[in-house]
Design a protein around this nucleic acid. Sequence first.
DNA 1: TGAAATTCCATTGACGCCCATCTAATCCCA
DNA 2: TGGGATTAGATGGGCGTCAATGGAATTTCA
Lengths: 167, 167
Amino acid sequence: MIGALGAALALFLSTFVNKVDRKGRVSVPATFRAALAGQAFNGIIAYRSFKLPSIEASGIDRMEEMSARIDALDEFSEDRDALSSIFADAQQLAFDGEGRVVLPEALCQHAAITEGAAFVGLGRTFQIWEPQRFERHQQELRERARRQGTTLPARRPERPQPERGTP
Amino acid sequence: MIGALGAALALFLSTFVNKVDRKGRVSVPATFRAALAGQAFNGIIAYRSFKLPSIEASGIDRMEEMSARIDALDEFSEDRDALSSIFADAQQLAFDGEGRVVLPEALCQHAAITEGAAFVGLGRTFQIWEPQRFERHQQELRERARRQGTTLPARRPERPQPERGTP
DNA sequence: TGAAATTCCATTGACGCCCATCTAATCCCA
DNA sequence: TGGGATTAGATGGGCGTCAATGGAATTTCA
């Protein structure tokens, strides 16, 4: 099943733009729902991004994992306080029968979302953007990547490749 | 079996030019499909090249590996953000019964693909080009190689790659 | 009881799935 | 060795299904 497959890793890929209706509802892309299938909470967790005018989101599993990681930090460290505040801000958005969620006012405002919402896969998490803003943001990132030559950290081959002589 | 063979190594070789029909479908070369057989997702992952007017593609395995590697980076680091953007741009293109995929508008536009698509094997990954553009690109590469006497830098996995100065 | 939120139902349009044809290699046998 | 048969890959088109969407109906809470 797709569900079992997705549950194994929950990889969010690609970007989908869906409409927000007048009630604030928006469909979560089917592939994202599939990736979330089988988690303890049937919906998504959403909170305002620190650095960006966007909404950060993931499944509940990721949240629990984050909780554990934060717990490992120093009790009174600044990082810990900052990160903990994520939980205060986070909202559980349940799916309706059609796989939609209602985007709360506070989140929409932070991301300037009105008519449309771009669901942006980032691997283990995803973001929700106002489509045009994301377009710009995306271009900036690409620009930077091209300039800096940001590439994937060199893949270190496990097995030492035999010397590859000149052909 | 071919499948087992392909799964073990997943090597993409050679170049194939196929037609894009009016529905945007194009056959992925059979040998490429064979190389992808047995992966978790029955299709290809495609995203716009940063530097070239072409489409970068691979199997989902490579993506999962990338996800794992990026996950190892700091949760809120800049690099992580930049790299994650690849996931945003990546699209899962599933095979139909005949081994074709639909090339989405955004990708076609980036690569200027209309009627034909050249599948270019690059070993662990492959690219998809507009055939004539690839022809030119190919010539340029050869030209430059001849002039500069470019040789393959023997990629020695063990030795950490020397600092790559800004061009 | 009114407003808001949740559930249910209907529409539509894209995409996945199936079959039919065509082409090009390969094979077989006279 | 040449021609016909066979198979696999590539290509084209039709149709059913499901995801996305919009609105109505029903429930919940103040």
